[in-house]
Design a protein around this nucleic acid. Structure first.
Lengths: 407, 407
DNA sequence: CAACATAAGTCTTTTTCGGATCAAAGAAGA
DNA sequence: TCTTCTTTGATCCGAAAAAGACTTATGTTG
């Protein structure tokens, strides 16, 4: 008799044969580049693989590229994902800026646009304009590439969103947006599904395409005007019961005393660590000669050597680290990624974060823990929105549905 | 043109046809009780459903029960999961106690055994005895039910475990256990796979079978001699990068000052909120006439009206709540379940937890938030270990593999 | 009691799959 | 250089599986 530990290294979650959509995913993620590799990975017969690959090539999603190097016999024809089989639209809406982009199916920007708007603008004032700009970008991007269809639209907003109904349900920063259905505004742009997510979640998704690519458990900090956290656990972006997961900015911390927060409460972490709070302190206590209106100004000063600005960033990192340490003990991530405007001064900010995290976290939770800067910088919003849409429209189920509709 | 929000209400994750294992899951979880319901849920043809159901009945996993009430035509034959098609073994090892059980496939105890052991006993001293007791329990349970096969063994330990290799990798409480492969000890008991998990994770799994059954996002607190947390997010138990998720007991908190913790560090949450710390304080400051050696003694005193004990429990809840508040903001659970020995004094403990949580958490994260007592009490360990094994051996993949092996 | 509705077994047709066979294209060795 | 071997990919065919039609069983409803 032998008792064994089951090695849960199944490549597939189910015993059912792999579908065409799953094969596309294997090619798309680089795990397979030839039909034979697909056979080996899925256990499907050559006939079955051929049939599915044909369906995918007929639909234009897969291309047979040039021959690869032989491994001792006839060289295989390369399977390449056709990143031009469609496009997705990305709409990253911030407090004072909206960034738009048209992306190919690899997540590469084909056209992009960014525009500042006044703080507090409502959806009825902003979104028609956004839709119009989006149509313009789309026309420009489609013109010289054979009009690839729009497969999906990804949109991000600060605050808590209901991803099923496609609306904001609690955003202290975007007044007038709560409860407003967003999909109708994009009806004229394209006949494509709209996917919405929180700005921090979207940042996390952009990092899954970037620095934290291979990791399954990651915390992605968005340290900008506000503070947010995107949580990747077991390779999935967590949203929580009401979609409010990652809302660490409004945790009450002792160090904040009874400082008033922009959310209406007092003592929130944001009052001492968020970008808006640092800007306020800088304006009150810093060098009065230099106007600081946005965290980006403060970060620029820090990079130029302003020691007060550097101190503020380090303090902010330290305060965030106090809360982050709990998150690290709780979730045991493989990496913490720092993004948002403050990440431009990564070293200064991280120094503060590290201080608190290593002091407060359990040794095992910080063993192997990496701290990484976000890789997409200013473009993280649109890249993440694109990733959000791509994750949905290129998911095996969606691809299979697409093939079924074609036939 | 119409832009729509995709309603992600897919019953299935894939477009591939449902396998027999998936059908069994639908029956087992009560979502289907007749072949027609399986047809409706899966989209499979009647022939396909019949074939899979036959395979399951032939394997003994499914039974055709008596006829159900007609819905206007011929009454359907009920499909019932055969909970006696096998058994699983549960081994919950604690610091000072090991609980064993034989469970049917519904998670019902058929035989159980609990024995105290000295603190600090090593695996070589404890496990052979455990294996022997387990064999005895198994013989007794199998005798009068036609010798159902052992499908799996679930084992829990305090600390951090490597579930792939099946060993402890960091348990300050169980010295001598780290790095010791556990499966070999059970080779003589049954030819079945061993699944290992942390005691808090196992508690969380037991609650998924109980009070938190329908919920997808739950925090399960284990407040006993030590402090632990099991995290259920999107219906899955999170374990983190190294398996250390939920280790909140050794978060450094200011209120703990530089009190020495049993883990070797200072200032851990456990030093002011764990059962062992309360017992120490009770012994030093409480009524000297009553010997308090274990949290259970302290809880018993609280329930009898001892105000010092009640105060300690409430204080402990308050301290835990400080950290729990961050966890709640972070993960936005639908419910927090309180388990472990202290949960026997649920009301006193919860009062403290509530105080901190409501003071520190963001309003949206605590909207709808329920606090529930763990339902399995003293039996949570073995129930959870059983659930751990059942989750694996009754998973669709495993069932499909079983059917394939049979044929 | 007849008409109808639902369930489930049986049979036939269609689809899909896997293996065999064969052709293509290069590598390895004589 | 030529032959043999290996790998890839296309085609064909038989086996298996699934879907649909038909039939039988057993209730409810009027």
């Amino acid at each position: 008799m032998l008792t064994r530990v089951i090695q849960v290294v199944e490549t597939r979650e189910t015993a059912a044969p792999a579908t065409a959509g799953e094969l596309l995913e294997l090619v798309r993620t680089g795990r397979a580049a030839t039909r034979s590799q697909l056979r080996a990975l899925t256990g499907l017969s050559r006939t079955a693989v051929t049939a599915r690959v044909s369906a995918l090539t007929n639909a234009g999603l897969l291309l047979i590229g040039e021959e690869l190097a032989s491994t001792g016999g006839r060289p295989p024809g390369a399977l390449v994902f056709n990143k031009d089989a469609g496009v997705v639209l990305a709409v990253a809406i911030g407090r004072s800026r909206s960034q738009l982009a048209v992306l190919d199916l690899d997540g590469q920007e084909l056209a992009a646009d960014s525009r500042d708007h006044e703080v507090g603008v409502g959806p009825d004032d902003l979104l028609p304009d956004v839709a119009q700009r989006l149509t313009g970008l789309l026309d420009a991007a489609q013109a010289d590439r054979g009009e690839p269809p729009v497969l999906g639209i990804g949109l991000s907003l600060p605050g808590t969103l209901d991803s099923v109904r496609g609306l904001s349900i609690g955003s202290p920063v975007m007044s007038g947006w709560d409860g407003v259905e967003l999909a109708p505004y994009f009806a004229g742009v394209a006949d494509a599904p709209l996917f919405v997510a929180n700005d921090a979640d979207v940042l996390a998704r952009s990092e899954l395409l970037g620095g934290a690519g291979g990791l399954d458990d990651v915390l992605v900090v968005k340290a900008s005007t506000g503070l947010g956290l995107g949580i990747i656990a077991d390779g999935r972006v967590l949203s929580g019961h009401l979609g409010a997961a990652g809302e660490i900015g409004h945790t009450v911390v002792d160090a904040a005393g009874d400082l008033a927060c922009r959310c209406g409460a007092t003592g929130c972490l944001e009052t001492i660590a968020a970008g808006w709070a640092l800007v306020t302190r800088m304006a009150a206590e810093g060098d009065q000669g230099v106007p600081v209106e946005h965290v980006r100004d403060l970060v620029a000063l820090a990079l130029q050597g302003d020691s007060f600005a550097r101190g503020l960033l380090r303090d902010s990192g330290r305060e965030l680290g106090e809360v982050l340490a709990v998150a690290i003990n709780l979730l045991n991530p493989a990496a913490v990624v720092i993004g948002g405007d403050m990440a431009a001064a990564f070293e200064f900010y991280l120094a503060g974060v590290r201080e608190s995290v290593y002091r407060r976290s359990a040794p095992l939770a910080t063993r192997d823990l990496q701290f990484l800067p976000a890789v997409h910088g200013d473009r993280a919003g649109v890249v993440g929105c694109g990733a959000l849409a791509l994750d949905h429209v290129l998911a095996p189920v969606a691809v299979d549905a697409r093939l079924a509709a074609l036939a």
